[in-house]
């Protein structure tokens, strides 16, 4: 059926279209602007205008509309910069570490923390689980935390100490008033840490699969800690290629969740000894391909009997290192004036 007679175009254009065989809406449906411009010899801008006008008449979905859902979601670099500036971060309680991290552990990103045994990786995870709950009035996020413990190292009495210190710190800040005492105490802090104890690699895969549903039901969760992602994957896998595939699929799922639910995902990784040219050195475990699973990688190490953190990988931040301490109150900056009580 020739409907070109009712199209809102000048006669010259209509005849050009007809001459090129474009006389029905259907015939124009799968034509790209550049092809149309060539066929009827108009500029590409003109061709696009024609197609857009016709799309307005015809409400039926065209093939380009499926791809345009992605294209229309584009953000300019300026938009991204503005979002970046308002991005929320979880403070680590240590000023040096926070500046190393550009203000704290970023929501919507996957951050990996690795380091030698006993360096304080678990302390880091526990501290973040407390700090994510600092209310908005105190420049915090006011969220809650999911703590996935694969190693059995989460000690509730230690979390209690950190929560007590955090409450004390917040109460000492002037100009902050909390409307009711009971909404803000140590017990609430602990009740907002959702603790999963994972006993093997299958359970670990299951919890990551399940996490989407859990986060949907608990929108207030702003932090997911997996301590550690490594333990159950360091044994029981004869097929290393399979292990790599399972791990990278897990990494992809976590990255998707972090963006979808605006949560910070913190993965604790172990280190392994690698022999290169007869020299042994400690490198993050789980191999090369796993290094792509995280956006940021923070390495913790000892130097001159002082704990340090090194920004090993980050898309936006420089690779520098910063000292930190672990005290009874939790993670904090190094106090050189008095000998800190190290943990």
């Amino acid at each position: 059926m020739d409907v070109s007679g009712v199209w809102p175009f000048p006669l010259s254009l209509r005849s050009k279209l007809a001459a090129a065989g474009y006389s029905t809406l259907a015939s124009l449906q799968n034509v790209s602007p550049s092809a149309l411009a060539r066929d009827i010899q108009v500029s590409q801008g003109e061709a696009l205008r024609i197609l857009k006008t016709l799309r307005g008449i015809d409400d039926a979905p065209t093939c380009s509309s499926t791809s345009s859902s992605l294209l229309s979601s584009a953000k300019t670099a300026w938009d991204l910069l503005c979002i970046e500036k308002t991005r929320k971060r979880i403070s680590t309680s240590c000023a040096e570490l926070d500046s190393l991290l550009g203000g704290g552990i970023c929501l919507q990103e996957v951050t990996e923390i690795c380091g030698a045994p006993g360096i304080g990786k678990t302390q880091f995870g526990m501290q973040l689980a407390i700090n994510v709950q600092i209310p908005k009035e105190a420049d915090g996020i006011g969220g809650s935390a999911v703590y996935i413990d694969t190693e059995g190292s989460f000690m509730v009495e230690r979390a209690l100490q950190m929560a007590q210190a955090c409450v004390a710190r917040l109460c000492s800040v002037d100009g902050l008033s909390f409307n009711s005492e009971d909404s803000f105490n140590v017990d609430t802090f602990l009740s907002k840490i959702y603790y999963f104890r994972i006993c093997d690699s299958t359970e670990q895969i299951a919890i990551v699969n399940q996490l989407e549903k859990f986060l949907e039901e608990h929108k207030e969760v702003k932090l997911v800690v997996i301590d550690s992602v490594t333990f159950h994957f360091r044994h029981g896998f004869e097929d290393m290629a399979l292990r790599t595939r399972l791990l990278s699929s897990m990494g992809q799922k976590l990255m998707r969740l972090s963006e979808l639910f605006e949560v910070a995902v913190v993965l604790v990784n172990q280190v392994t000894t690698k022999f290169t040219g007869g020299i042994s050195k400690l490198v993050p475990a789980l191999g090369e391909s796993w290094s792509h699973a995280c956006t940021n990688r923070l390495i913790l190490y000892w130097e001159n009997n002082q704990r340090h953190a090194y920004m090993f990988k980050s898309p936006s931040l420089p690779s520098v290192s910063a000292p930190f301490s672990v005290t009874q109150e939790g993670i904090c900056g190094v106090d050189y004036s008095k000998r800190p009580r190290r943990l």
Binding site: Y147, D187, S191, I193, Y194, Y195, R197, E203, I207, Q210
Partner: peptide, 8 residues
């Protein structure tokens, strides 16, 4: 997946 408990 094992059930969760709160730290409390």
């Amino acid at each position: 997946c094992p059930p969760y408990r709160s730290a409390l």
